[in-house]
Amino acid sequence: MSALHFFKPDLLWLLPLALLPLVSYGVKQFNFPGLEDWPKDFISDSLKWGVRALAVLALTALIVASAAPFTEGGTVTRVGDGAEIVIVLDRSGSMSEPLQNYDQSVDAKPMSKIEASRKVLLKFMEQRPADTFGVVAFNAAPVSVAPLSSDREIAKAAMLSAEANSSGFTALNRALAMGLDYFQNRPFTASRLILLVSDGDAVIEKEDREILKKSFKQTRAKLIWVYVHAGAEKNILSSVIAGDNEYITGAELQQIEMNQNVAMNKLFEELEIPYQAFEVNSEQGLQRAVTEIAQMTNKPTRYEYRLPRQDYAVYLYLLAMFLLGALFWLKQIEIKSWKA
């Protein structure tokens, strides 16, 4: 148990006021011709002091409560098998394009890429209860939407609020830098992951590459690219995962896009950082990603959990209320005039 602190210790100077009830009884007084033959009554005699004690206690409780006493909650070290994951979510214009739909039925609504990735990420978060999540969204500039914390609700709300918005330029490098910033000044207690959710429509300058490479090394973070692709695009994994989804060459434009995405994939590989890419546009893809990440993050997370400070004012106010209630009741049964 840590020491007791006061939020407003100055108010404790009012404590001598609590002795005020000792000056008077606060009960109506009547003259009586002779008390020498008044029957001995233990209850009355003890009430004489009891009433004043009640009043003193009530005042003390009120004053101490208003000084807001609390104890620091302290921190506990918790061990989880999760990882620290920063989701870097692309919300550039291209993410609002409809996803290639595996469901070929007529009434299936087309789903935008960002919507799909959001859905997938939420599912992912649900399946990883021990992980710590932070969210960075970016298009032309990265926005730190949710800090890296074990509070799920913030991350979830951040995810849900992310909407695709075209702004002509995708600041991938800065977003990654911001995501890496999250890991700065934190003890390395868990596996660190940057989960880039993007359709890959971005380039990284040569100088930036060097900086990123350095930061990745410094923070010892791994990069996972969750690739969201529309049907028309080239599966970037064709170069990573052999065989299963060979792309058949189409239009010239698609070739360029393919080149770009494949280039991005290559680029990440060139960063000389632990890197993996997943194509996530189906349930199976998600499952695979989850198991892969689980394998990557088998290092147990030891994290400091800061307990909220314990506030005692509430109990004191409750006590004061109770005591004041008792005093009020005593005042109610006070004899107003000495007659039957």
Partner: peptide, 17 residues
Amino acid sequence: GIAMLRDTETGNQKFVW
């Protein structure tokens, strides 16, 4: 009820219920 009684002769006070 409760009241305080004061002896008119001795001035002693007594709390009575």
